[in-house]
Amino acid sequence: MADSLVPAISIRNLTKVYPIPFKRERVVAVRNLSLHVEPGQVYGLLGPNGSGKSTTMKIILGLVSPTEGTTTIFGRDSSEVESREQVGFLPENPYFYKFLTGEETLFFYGKICGLRGAKLRERTRELLALVGLEGARDRRLGGYSKGMLQRIGLAQALVQEPRLLVLDEPTAGVDPAGSREIRDLILNFKTRGITVMLCSHLLEQVQEICDRIGILHQGKLVREGRLEELISIENQTELILENASPDLLRQIGALVSGSDAKLIAQHQPQRTLERFFLEVTGKEK
């Protein structure tokens, strides 16, 4: 099969059951889940706390074994160590090794991925530039802000040039400016052809960057599909006009009232609170 036709992630009939120690009860974290993520997509896995998102991610990364079903990464069984050559992972609220500097952190992750010498140094320099941490390369991670930690986390995830990034709450606890920088980085990865699977509770941000989403609830995939198709209201149409005169608006209103359609709302669009915050704090690019 051509490489571009192989799904980046393929999950088939996945079920994960956790036994409760010293009890006969069992917790079903994921029930019969099947989904595919195509190469180059940004896929959002959404769901309330305890819905099975993290368990699914851990199974994809081989950290937890499935009770039933299979998961593959670019066609390789995700329980095989080799499948992780193609994956970069950023966990939720990672701490990393506080005693290492930013540069040492990337050296360490590069070394365990088989990089060394000039290639490792070059890759570290590139990644520090990509995530905007060149100025903090010699500072220990213990002194990094939350946003900086997330960015060095993204850099370590990319160190072996993976084709798939798995990001668990990549902007959790980060201020709006830092959050936007991370969002821009994810969009940048997409333009480089990197597939991204992310979990986030920030639905507005998911809406901005994801091509496709899946919603998990109590371990089951309740909805899945292209974002535009899932959230569009099929029987409504939105017109946004600039510099429309009151006369024009009256004419449009008269046209609508003479038809079968119904005008539901007419108001001035509002900027998002995030954009307003960034304008006020001078961080809007």
């Binding site: 990364l61 081989g62 160590v81 992972f89 950023l90 609220n93 990672p94 090794y97």
Partner: peptide, 14 residues
Amino acid sequence: EDRTLYTILAKPVP
């Protein structure tokens, strides 16, 4: 506890 283990074992490290 720091989830550093996840980032290491998510790499191709047996």
